[in-house]
């Protein structure tokens, strides 16, 4: 049993609170969170939300271009909040939190992207349009 814990530097054991000895310990697996992070995160999210809202309401561009811009704004806000609010990437190594978040993003991209690709492809091929449906129904009647 060695006196020096291998991860000693990560922990900050202070002893200035009298009532509860359990409360003395500071958990530091991540770099400390500061007020400025929350302020930056909040203001930038606010701006991105408002920009997205305004360009949509005013239809400032072609619909397809707007879709892309809105998606990028959402993605930007997602990354900002992940970093400033959820502190992903601010841990000391090993960055397991970041690992899980990256893997989650990969799975979500595959799942959502793949599902939409498959389903819209099927919609185009399997789902009849209204006129096709009418034609089909007429052909059945004539039988």
């Amino acid at each position: 049993m060695s006196k020096k814990h291998p991860n000693h530097h990560k922990y900050h054991l202070s002893g200035n609170e009298p009532q509860d000895s359990e409360a003395l310990v500071e958990v530091q697996e991540e770099r400390p969170v500061l007020l400025k992070h929350y302020i930056i995160g909040f203001i930038s999210s606010l701006i991105l939300t408002l920009v997205a809202y305004i360009i949509t309401i005013n239809h400032v561009a072609d619909r397809n271009i707007l879709f892309i811009i809105l998606a990028l704004l959402a993605l930007g806000q997602f990354l900002l909040q992940m970093f400033y609010f959820l502190h992903v990437g601010r841990e000391f190594s090993p960055k397991f939190k970041l690992l899980m978040a990256s893997f989650m993003s990969l799975v979500v991209i595959i799942l959502v992207g793949g599902s939409l690709w498959i389903m819209f492809n099927l919609n185009g091929r399997v789902m009849p349009t209204q006129s096709q449906m009418v034609k089909y129904m007429n052909s059945q009647n004539s039988l």
Binding site: G114, N121, R125
Partner: peptide, 21 residues
Amino acid sequence: VVLSFIVWLHHFFTMGASPDV
């Protein structure tokens, strides 16, 4: 682990997706 998330359509090849998919 990664690839097993990218193969699920092979359970329903016959559902009618295009040859590309």
